[in-house]
Design a protein around this nucleic acid. Sequence first.
DNA 1: GCCTGCGGCGCGTTTTCGGCAACGGCCTCC
DNA 2: GGAGGCCGTTGCCGAAAACGCGCCGCAGGC
Lengths: 302, 302
Amino acid sequence: MKHLTTFRLIDEVARLGSIRRAAEAMAITASAVQRRLIAFEEELGEPIFERLPHGVRLNAAGELAIHHVRQQLAETDRLRSRLADLTGVRRGHVSVACSQALTPYFLPEEIGRYSALYPAVRFEVMVQEHGAASGALEAYLVDLALVFDAAGPPPFEILIAVPQPIRAMMAADHPLAGRGELRLRECLEYPLALPTRAFGGRMLIERSLAARGFSATPELESNSFEYLKAHVARSRTIAFQIDVGAPRAGAGEGVTSVPVAARDVHAGSLYFGQLKGRTLSVAAARFADQVTRRLEERFGMG
Amino acid sequence: MKHLTTFRLIDEVARLGSIRRAAEAMAITASAVQRRLIAFEEELGEPIFERLPHGVRLNAAGELAIHHVRQQLAETDRLRSRLADLTGVRRGHVSVACSQALTPYFLPEEIGRYSALYPAVRFEVMVQEHGAASGALEAYLVDLALVFDAAGPPPFEILIAVPQPIRAMMAADHPLAGRGELRLRECLEYPLALPTRAFGGRMLIERSLAARGFSATPELESNSFEYLKAHVARSRTIAFQIDVGAPRAGAGEGVTSVPVAARDVHAGSLYFGQLKGRTLSVAAARFADQVTRRLEERFGMG
DNA sequence: GCCTGCGGCGCGTTTTCGGCAACGGCCTCC
DNA sequence: GGAGGCCGTTGCCGAAAACGCGCCGCAGGC
């Protein structure tokens, strides 16, 4: 990048503390460095280095300036990396923010399928609640977000939104296991294990219970679905989970799940999306396409 | 700043969609623009504009590049502002996108207060509906946005959100003027003047009317609050406006306003915010701080 | 007292940049 | 269907900026 030579130069001078050494490092003469430096200082309206007998040192304005210089250099690197991602599919980087429910089954399976096709693409999965996921999208920290939210659509560009029925989770040898469908009141005959209030699923359950005059007094609360699952496997407890995150019989986990009647608990939605107006890298766009199609297959209307 | 001319140029070309027009805007010839553009594209390794018969348009790589370009331009402004702050000049530039309701009273008053402290700071106010305001933030066209939205929080980083009760606007000598509070049905005994549907306030009114079985058949519709105000002053008409934009008695405008009972019309919210993750210039940050405090004073809970 | 390494500066050369004019493509209007 | 207009593009040439070179004055250290 041509227009950044002055910046690279300033960075070098600040780092080495000497105009001549910086000049040597950049393979030009000291006078050239000196000129560019003075030109830049005149643009800013004040010097950024104090001249000492044995070299130069940043002054107060220089401390501000060097921060800016390094930031711009870093930003330029980032652009180049993004452009490289855009150009080729084989190399690439996809980062996804998702709710905890996606971590045990859905996302690893999808990433596995994708990696089989494009092994050189690196993945990054960040588990976040839906508010933080939106923030991560906007800060360009992640390319895609896949979150469950019972309240309403999150403020990013939604590629697909699919309903998520609730399933009751129980030990494989639980009396209720193997049923085709459960009413909510049947579940309440057993102790409950619920996620903490930070999770979207909790709200759905509480609202449904309140609507029927029951109070939600869980035997156990946890912010980890993994822990809930482990607890359920070892007790008569019932837990709830959205479809995409619920275990199925035969996975050898000692837990299984049964759908709860739709008329008892309203379904929340799974939202898959990206930052509004952003153009994704080829790798990310392709992965987004695959996930969208899979969600459509599994949960699409019909 | 010399080294950013290429960036300013690219920004202009992207904005105007034409090399020649951008050249004219920057007071140079089209060939010069063309050369810089090609040089930049060769540095990147791939074109960022697709050439069309009637101009140019950003391609996928260009979308990445333009974001980077605008960010660097904005960052440079910020550096200048901080340096000015260091020197003691307090030169700076603050640009704000806002809803129309903010233009008659609130924003000019706040900018006036700020300018009294820092006279060298220049301001730019762009009136936009809330969707466009979010876009302007993301394109680095403005530093801050202050918008009214009845539907929900806009997708930027919200510095403060305050509720906005609705006031009924009428001529100073209107029979309803001077009342402490009005019920919605009292207003309906007079002809209505409403903003067009593009405005957030319109939705609030319509929903409230519909909920009570009334139909909104305004005598007058306009997309200009100034025009509504002038019309109200000369007739028996009633108009509605959110608190921050409503005229008060004694301003010599011939119009006044009375709050509408909160149980009749739900309050929308005023959202004040910036682009997520962006660090503002000193001038903009200071102004944001002032506005946030003022909104908190006037509309904060309590 | 000499030597070394430092920032600063004037001069001649090289490279870059911008303006001018002209070309070919596409669209529209007559 | 042809003329005119707007577009991006390119060759040419003069102006301006950048660069390298050599030199100066200065401050420490051996």
